[in-house]
Write a protein that binds this DNA or RNA. Sequence first.
DNA 1: TTGTACGCGTTATCAG
DNA 2: CTGATAACGCGTACAA
Lengths: 334, 334
Amino acid sequence: MAQVARVSKMTVSNVLNGKPNVKASTRQRVLSAVEATGYRANPVARALAGQRHRLLSLVARRSNLPYVTEVIRGASEAAEALEYDLVVLMVGQRQSSDLSLFLRLSQGAAFVHADAPGLGVPPGDLPLHCVTVDGPTHDSLRVDNLGGSRAATRHLLELGHTRIAFVSGLLALSPEASLGRSDAAERLRGYQDTLEEAGLTLPEAYLQHGDYSPESGERAARALLALPEPPTAIFAAGDAMAVAVIHAAQDLGRRVPTDLSVVGFDDLPFFRGVRPALTTVAQPLGSLGEEAVRHLARLAQGETPAALPPPLATTLVVRDSAAPPPPHQSIQTP
Amino acid sequence: MAQVARVSKMTVSNVLNGKPNVKASTRQRVLSAVEATGYRANPVARALAGQRHRLLSLVARRSNLPYVTEVIRGASEAAEALEYDLVVLMVGQRQSSDLSLFLRLSQGAAFVHADAPGLGVPPGDLPLHCVTVDGPTHDSLRVDNLGGSRAATRHLLELGHTRIAFVSGLLALSPEASLGRSDAAERLRGYQDTLEEAGLTLPEAYLQHGDYSPESGERAARALLALPEPPTAIFAAGDAMAVAVIHAAQDLGRRVPTDLSVVGFDDLPFFRGVRPALTTVAQPLGSLGEEAVRHLARLAQGETPAALPPPLATTLVVRDSAAPPPPHQSIQTP
DNA sequence: TTGTACGCGTTATCAG
DNA sequence: CTGATAACGCGTACAA
């Protein structure tokens, strides 16, 4: 290659990297030689020589894909806007042996629903910068679960409901697992706090424990609606459960929202097709990916006091599945 | 590192690569030194030295995520089963500059909804093996659109429908773009062929052109239901349109499937929450990813006559949105 | 069985 | 402004 242009490879390197110290005529000669040969620098060699690529990695567990897909989309768009490349590494439970390759090549890595040690990545392989998104560690990029849960509960109160049941997500089993991974707990607390502030105390049976699965949602709904004094509203900590609640209620002859109001949490595009359209708390999943990438980019640029953004705002999206309670609440308990 | 074990790096290399020609005692010494230092071979240098990693790349356009997500899932699972690593490269319209890095590192690459030239990848950067999944080129891994479309149409005929409308997908605009990318055309043809074989000729207005978007589905539904002799069944070439058709029909006071049957195409998990549950043609999207990976793995192992698998079977999934037509069809045209 | 020398393709350093 | 030389960290081939 260098022969073709009759210069040293050094000069070729300088030309390709846009260094200013090349005479215009030489540069032209090199450029046309490059053109002629279709030559392209070998990125692997470049990496070995110590250059870091404008590259970010995103490592995601293959579970809950509908969730991570949105995060990936946001991350990918942000990366493109910032002129970074983004590779997505999908991992199962086993650690991916060549994770380290990409981690070395990248300027930073975001771990979604996981963290590096959790994936068996040796510290030595870590690139300069890391973020975990909704991960087990404390310094994780998060969403305001508490605020969203409060907003949803408040919404139901404002509609006039007093008998509001809750279907929880999967609460942490082990103490370690709970470290930070407290979505379900925060959503539960938002519900409980808001009711308490409103001076309401509800029967224990109004709190059902689910695990985010549709099955658990259906079970909870059947249990709640079989109660002597059933709730007029059910707030489920996840959309999948909320949709299952709607369907179970409909199967039991209840109209939603006329007879029963249902509110979800997530606003996954996945469930946009449901009718009645689900009133739910939207998590900014795309923004989660965006912010992760932005934060990584900031770190890469050397902004030392690059603080993690505060929990991202969740917003209540009012659609059709929640309405005022039926006027004659006591019809079932004469 | 070599110093620690008091051997040459050569021996370290041999130990790490499991070569048999090392004395057991030496191997032990190296192993414990590796353990102690936490040493790991640098994958970049290894790649530069000419080693190909057990790595496959999957390049996907960031558009239609619900679709590609399923393909990715299948590919990722298959890769794990085959003990390959898989990197996913999400690209926008612009070509990703570092695509070539990964392409060089991989043993093969699958392009979903795209092909290498289409992404501006120079041929020199291509790894040994490529597959395109549902891409523009002719040698692309595909799904049996024709068969699925025929099955759906036949199903409606067997239910007793004779007034069956069709909402097409986005038909190719330019001649080049149509090369292979003929999903929409094949689905249309399956519908037309089947009706023809049944000896039915339908009014031109029963063929509506959509573009896979919900909006186009709604438009088509409104147009069809406003006809003097509206169809009793609507077959939409995509789930998103089918769902839009259902909703539009319901908004116009039609019951689905009592008054109107609706059949979709895709079976995206995205729309599983819809009620009535959508009768639709399932595309094996996960299998598409799996087969792509398997094919790549076969090629990588040197199976020369590795033929591309035939189009993957689609299957009609009968759920609740299609039923026999209402008995008195002529009520609207006295 | 183990060690030496060289090459992979690039960039940094420093000399010319 | 340009070119020679030395890394980068590993694998391969061959020699000891």
